[in-house]
Each structure stands twice: as C-alpha cells, then as structure tokens.
Simulated scan of single mutants.
Amino acid sequence: MAAAPAAATNAPSAPPASMFDSVPGYEGTVAGGGGGYLPPPMPAVPMPVPEAGPAQPNWNIPSISEDAAREAFVNFASSKCCYSTGPAKDGVITSMEPFNTYRYRLETFTESRSTEWLHEPYSNQPLDAGMQRAPGPWEIAAQMPGFFQDTIQNIKVPYTSSVKMCHACVGMGRVPCKDCTGCGSKVCWVCNGSGFRQTNDRCMHCNGRGRDNCFKCSGKGTNECSTCRGRSQLLVFINLKVQWTNNKEDFVVEQSSGLRVENFSKVSGREMFKDSQFMLYPVMGFPDPAVAQASERLIREHMSKYGQMVRILQQRHTIELIPVTRVTYAWKGKSHLYFVFGNEMSVNAEDYPATCCCSVM
C-alpha cells in the first residue's frame, strides 16, 4: 500500500505563515504564540477624589483567655503526628501578651486581551472571512464575571474564519506511521528477520516472512492525521483571549510580637475598613501612619503596573485587625513560647519541646 507523501513525514509543528490571511487590525497576530497583550483604548476618566479616612472605632481586640489559648495549643499538638501533647496539656502558662496587627490589602481587578491564530478540523463550520470588517479586539463584547474573580474567556473573532488545506498531512488526511516509518511492517522480534528459528525451522510467528504487520497502523503504513482528524482541511480563525485578573497585594504592619509576617497569609482578621470604587484614593487619616503610607505606595504601583496594557475595572482596599497573643509557658523546668493568632485561632510553635514522640520498635 502506498505511503503518504514524503513531505508529511516531518510535518511542521505549526502552520506556515502563508496559511493565514491578513486581517486589518490583527497584523501582529501569529500562530499559537499569541499577538501579545493589546492595550485598551484609554477612557476619559476623572481622577478619584480624596475622601475622609475611616472613622476610628475601638482598634483594640481583647486578649484571649488562658483556657482558649491552651485549647488552641492542644489542638495544634494533636494535629501533628510526631508531637507529644504533654507540653500543650501540662505546660504552665506564665504570661500572655496581646499584639494587634494591621493588614492593608489592595485589589485591582483588570481585563486584558490578546489574540492568536488557531485552527481546528474543518467539519462544515460557517466561513465568514472577508464578508465584513473584523471588529477590533476591544470592540468585541465579552461576558464579564463578577468583580474580583479570575476568569478566562476565548472568543472566535467574527469575520476571520476560513478553510485551508491541512499543513500536517498536505491534505491527504493521513500521515506515515512513526512506528514503522510508513512500511506497514517491522522486523520480526522472534527470528530477528531471518524467517527461521535457531533449529532451522520456519518461524511460526511471522510464517517465515521475517516481518510482522505493524500494530500501530494495522499494516497500512499510515495513520489518521491528528491535526485535521482525517478531514484533510482546517478551519483557521483568530482567537481572542479575554482574561480577568484580580491583582492582590498585602501589607502587614511591622509588629514586635516576633511572629513572622508570612504566617499572617493563612489567617483572617476583623475587618475594620473597606472601600471599593473604579479608582481608589489612598487611605487618609488612619491611626497608624504605616498603613496610610502603604496604601499610597501600592495604589501608585498598581496604576503604574496596570494602567497601560490592561483595563482597570474596579479597585478595592481593606484594613483588617489581626489578633496575636504571645504565650509563654514552662515545661520540665524550661521556658517556651507559642503564638495564637487570627480569627481561626491558629498556632505557631517553632520551639515545641516534644516533637519526637514516636519510635521504631
């Protein structure tokens, strides 16, 4: 049986440039690699007007009780497979110090758009290339999700769909089998191609032919083209990728408890202030100047980072008060400490004194 054309043996991984039509407004779009992010038209938007800062409520959270601190510690030790609960249950609490920590969070919800040429097997899909002017990337309507939700939507750009011959199989619908290099058979593994066994008897596996039919292609020498799925033609079109991203950054005010800042990413606090607008103005009049400074810096950085190549749809900032209690306790004559923090009553105990309670018998 004749094999597929030799040109298809080393089929290109991507369509040739000549396969694509020139579409006004999409000249920089390439196959599979995207055309890069497309800057949105800049709307005439007034700058945000500064507002009064958050009213000052009671910024202090009462310290937790000794019983609550011990219960959180016991639950922590019990959750560790190699921790003895002895220190948590029997340790004597000698002091408890509250440290309330502010966390400022800025979220900037953006929309970005990029394009690329894509193709799929042609099965009589509608063809509309050249019928009208293709709308620009930012003229195409997209269904936006709720604010501050990461989402991706792919849209086939109208008036860019055309049919082309498949580049992978040169329009044959089949490609040479890689397992047998298009021969349809392979050397018999039993007789190593001789047709005879070591006893000079004819090889029964291949009936003395010295070759076996290729299992991958059933002896045909070709397989269905995976690019066009045997249809010989491809639908070629421009794909618009619309991506909504919630760009979030936190700032935790330096505090003297000794608990490392990265621990705060795992917990929540009491929300003391929240504001959401199209564009935000930095927080003003906050009791801790570090929060106001962080707000001004992060808003400025977000405008510089996202204000050109993507469209800002909404911004939101919040201030949380995260409770931290540093607990000092004595166990077996030595002093140790642990932290209870966040609404979740999480525990951090890096110097837990009994971490090897299991042994190998």
Rank of each mutant, 00 (worst) to 15 (best):
A6Q: 09
S18P: 00
F20A: 07
G25A: 08
T29D: 08
G33D: 11
G35F: 11
M42K: 12
P43E: 11
M47K: 10
V49D: 02
E51V: 07
E51Y: 04
Q56C: 07
P57T: 06
P57H: 05
W59Y: 12
N60H: 09
I64G: 13
S78H: 11
S79W: 14
K80N: 15
S84H: 10
T85H: 06
D90C: 12
D90I: 07
G91F: 07
V92H: 04
T94I: 12
F99E: 07
R103P: 07
Y104K: 05
Y104G: 04
Y104D: 05
R105F: 08
R105L: 09
E107C: 04
T108N: 07
T108I: 06
T110E: 03
S112P: 00
S114A: 11
T115V: 15
E116V: 04
E120P: 03
Q132E: 15
A134I: 04
A134L: 05
P135A: 00
Q143C: 08
V157N: 03
S161Y: 02
V163I: 08
H167D: 07
V170F: 03
G173D: 09
G173A: 11
P176I: 00
D179T: 13
S185K: 08
K186G: 12
V190E: 13
G193F: 03
G193M: 00
S194P: 04
Q198A: 12
Q198N: 10
H205C: 14
S218F: 02
G221T: 03
T222Y: 13
C228R: 01
F237R: 04
V242W: 01
Q243D: 07
G258V: 07
L259N: 06
K266Y: 12
K266I: 10
V267W: 08
F278R: 13
F278L: 14
L280N: 02
P289M: 03
A294E: 00
E296S: 15
I299K: 04
G307V: 00
M309H: 08
V310D: 06
R311E: 14
R316E: 05
T318Q: 10
L321Q: 09
P323A: 01
Y329H: 06
W331F: 13
Y338H: 01
S346I: 10
A349K: 04
A354K: 09
T355N: 08
S359W: 13
M361I: 10
